[in-house]
Amino acid sequence: MAIQNSGPTLVQGARATQSTIFLKILMAASGAVFIAFVLLHMYGNLKAFNGHDAYNEYAEHLRELGTPMLPHSGALWIIRAVLILSLVVHVYCAATLWKRAKKARTVRYQVKKHTGAIFASRMMRWGGVTLLLFIIWHLLNFTIGKVNVTGGATNDPYNLVVDSFSTWWLTVIYLVAMAMLGAHLHHGIWSATQTLGLTNSDRTRKLAKNSAFTLAVVIAGGFSLVPIFVLAGVINK
């Protein structure tokens, strides 16, 4: 350690809730909401294998969840509110930490090896941006705008799914997005357990990394099944 004592002084009145680690904890917590969401969403999508009526009944059931205690679509809107809040928190923390990381090294190395890093961990930020763009398109496609790229009807969820994924380029977009989601989850799930302080030994770290990989494959793979089987003509109208 060097002897020179330049400008910076000791921080007075430090608050743990104003630290970079607190931002990371918020990212992990909001990320956990998304993990639960994509797991359930993926499971729901697989209803497409049960045919037109089962899939549409599931979609309608989501709106009747909790009725008559809750109004029609009430539970769905509660879930949506939690997801929107989580998204705002997740993106805000990511942007703040990204900006900070850029400032922490303003002069880049001429030569830099990335020993210890993997593709998934190095892709977190740009992968996150890709997923954000995908989510916007996905909501326009199936929720808010209901875009049928084949020009057909949009009022029948099952038929919209079949029409959409019969279009090869749309299926490609979704499969690329699922690869990005898998990579994001692969690093993100392990990173969240580490940030929450659950991996304090070699054993738990390996367990967290293996679980993250498995979950990422199950979720991204599960999501990919419906588009692939629609394109292959197995799931049809």
Partner: peptide, 22 residues
Amino acid sequence: VTNMVAQHDHEGFGGCTNIGEC
């Protein structure tokens, strides 16, 4: 931990993303 992390942030170090290059 509170004081060390606050000092770390104040010095201009970045946040950890658990990549493992360290």
